[in-house]
C-alpha cells in the first residue's frame, strides 16, 4: 500500500466547498434530525466563507445535498434578488456548477431565509430554512442544559404561559414570527422566523423541510406528512396575518403575504413578499406565457393541498422523481 492509495488526488477545492468528512458528519446528523422530527440535533457547523448568522447553517445543508443537476433557488425574506440571496445563490453555483433558478416550480433545492414560497412545494423538492435561534424555550429558559431537559420531558407549560401573558397584556398573541409549533405531537420547535402565515405550509406538506442554525450548531427537520401544530388555546384559535384584502402596489397580486412599505404621507403601500410570485403576476398581466403554480393560500385563506398526486407535471426534468423498486411497495 502506498501513500497515493490512501489519499485522494489533489484538488484546489472540494466539490461543493465542504470537505468530504464535513459532509458525512452533516449527512449523519440530518438522518437523525429526520428520524426525530422537530428535535434539535447538534452538529459541527464548519467554517464557510460567510459570517455566522448570515445563513451558514442553511448553506452547509445546501452544499451537502447539492450536485451538478440540482436546480437551486435562494430566497431572502421572500426576495430572490436581495444581496444576501444573490450572494448565496452565486456561491452555490460557483462551488458546485449547479444551475440556478428564481422559479419555485423549477427548483429542486430551495434555501430560504424567513419565508416559505407561496406556490405549493412538491415531494421532490427540499426546503432548507436558515435559523438564527433554534431554541423555542430560550425566552422562558436561557439555560440550555435545563432547556434540553425540558425537551426531554416534553415540559412545555411555560410556552403556553408565555402566550397567555401576551393575551392578557395585549389582548392577542403578539408572536409575529417563529411561532412555536408542536411537531409530531412531541417536540416544540421554532419554525425559524417565518411569519405566522407560513407555519401551516409545513403541516402535512409533501416536501421535506430541513432547518439549520449554523451559529448555534443545531439542525432539525420536518419530514413530509408530519403534523406541525402551532401552540394555541382551545378558545383562542391560531390566526395568520390578515392579508387577504391587500393588493400589491406593483403587481396587483392579491391574497398572498405582503410587505408593508411606509409612505411619506404617513400611510402605507403593500408589495408582494414572494418576489417571484409578483414577477409572475406582472408577466401574466402583460400577456406572457408563465406557469403559475397552485398556491397554499387562496384570497388570503389557507387551502389544504388536494390529496392525490403532486400538482402539475414537472417541466424541467424527471430523473429525480422517485423510481419504485420492482417487488417493493404494496403486497
Amino acid at each position: 500500500m502506498t501513500l497515493a492509495d490512501l489519499a485522494r488526488p489533489w484538488a484546489a477545492m472540494s466539490y461543493g466547498f465542504l470537505d468530504a468528512s464535513a459532509k458525512r458528519e452533516l449527512r449523519r446528523k440530518m438522518i437523525k434530525a429526520v428520524c426525530v422530527p422537530g428535535c434539535q440535533m447538534p452538529y459541527a457547523s464548519r467554517e464557510v466563507p460567510m459570517a455566522r448568522g448570515w445563513g451558514t447553517g442553511g448553506l452547509q445543508v445546501s452544499l451537502t445535498l447539492i450536485n451538478p443537476r440540482t436546480r437551486v433557488k435562494v430566497i431572502d425574506q421572500g426576495a430572490d434578488d436581495s444581496v444576501n440571496a444573490a450572494s448565496i445563490r452565486r456561491f452555490l453555483a460557483r462551488v458546485s456548477g449547479a444551475p440556478v433558478t428564481l422559479d419555485t416550480l423549477e427548483a429542486d433545492l430551495i434555501q430560504s431565509r424567513h419565508r416559505v414560497p407561496e406556490e405549493i412545494l412538491r415531494s421532490d423538492q427540499v426546503l432548507v430554512l436558515q435559523v438564527p435561534n433554534p431554541e423555542p424555550l430560550r425566552p422562558v429558559q436561557p439555560n440550555m442544559s435545563i432547556a434540553r431537559q425540558m425537551h426531554a420531558d416534553a415540559d412545555y407549560g411555560r410556552m403556553w404561559l408565555q402566550l397567555y401573558e401576551q393575551i392578557v397584556r395585549s389582548g392577542r398573541v403578539m408572536q409575529g414570527a417563529s411561532y412555536p409549533s408542536m411537531v409530531n405531537g412531541r417536540h416544540v420547535m421554532t419554525p425559524s422566523p417565518i411569519p405566522r402565515w407560513d407555519v401551516p405550509k409545513l403541516h402535512m406538506a409533501r416536501h421535506l423541510t430541513i432547518l439549520s442554525a449554523g451559529r448555534e450548531k443545531r439542525i432539525f427537520a420536518v419530514p413530509p406528512f408530519t403534523r406541525v401544530e402551532p401552540l394555541v388555546f382551545d378558545d383562542v384559535p391560531y390566526r395568520v396575518e390578515d392579508h387577504g384584502g391587500l393588493t400589491c402596489a406593483r403587481s396587483g397580486a392579491r391574497g398572498v403575504f405582503m410587505n408593508e412599505i411606509p409612505q411619506s404621507d404617513g400611510g402605507s403601500a403593500h408589495e408582494v413578499s414572494d418576489s417571484e410570485w409578483g414577477v409572475k403576476t406582472i408577466r401574466h398581466r402583460d400577456g406572457e406565457a408563465v406557469r403559475m403554480g397552485e398556491t397554499w393560500y387562496r384570497d388570503g385563506r389557507f387551502v389544504a393541498p388536494r390529496p392525490g398526486p403532486d400538482p402539475g407535471p414537472r417541466s424541467v426534468r424527471t430523473d429525480a422523481d422517485p423510481d419504485p423498486v420492482p417487488g417493493g411497495g404494496a403486497p
Partner: peptide, 24 residues
C-alpha cells in the same frame, strides 16, 4: 468550479436516496 469526482457523485446520490427513504 470544482468538478465532482466519482466518489463524491456516488456518495451524493446514495445519500439522496437514504434521506428520501428516511423521510418517506
Amino acid at each position: 468550479t470544482p468538478v465532482a469526482d466519482a466518489a463524491e457523485t456516488r456518495a451524493n446520490a446514495t445519500y439522496e436516496a437514504i434521506l428520501w427513504a428516511f423521510s418517506r
